[in-house]
């Protein structure tokens, strides 16, 4: 298994930090991509942060009321080694399928 850390992303508008309001997941939870992870409050608004990926949450950083800077660790996921690539998908090694058959008279001259 591999660990992947998800730092607090840049929330736009020049904001450099956010305060944790409420965690919507706990360590041990299996989450799906885009599932809301945490409610955050910035100086502009409150928002729900969606998960960037599927995986098992193994650590969360920041209790409600604590402030986290952009780029600091927020969530650590555990994922199987073979899905640990961050870009793209892992190709399946399917049984090979064919439509073309070969036909040849092999003169072994």
């Amino acid at each position: 298994m591999a660990e992947i850390s998800f730092p607090l992303p840049d929330l736009g508008e020049g904001l450099i930090e956010a305060t944790v309001l409420d965690w919507l997941v706990s360590p041990g939870d299996q989450v799906e991509r885009n599932q809301p992870l945490v409610e955050l409050e910035t100086s502009k608004s409150a928002l729900e942060l969606p998960s960037p990926q599927a995986g098992k949450v193994i650590r969360i950083h920041g209790s409600p009321g604590e402030t986290i800077n952009v780029g600091e660790p927020l969530v650590v996921f555990e994922v199987p080694d073979n899905t640990a690539g961050i870009v793209g998908t892992v190709p399946k090694d399917d049984a090979p399928k064919r439509r073309v058959r070969l036909s040849a008279v092999l003169d072994e001259d």
Partner: peptide, 14 residues
């Protein structure tokens, strides 16, 4: 893909 490679082989065999 597999079929395109097989067709390439067939062209050589023929």
């Amino acid at each position: 893909n597999i079929d395109r490679i097989l067709l390439g082989i067939q062209r050589v065999l023929e």
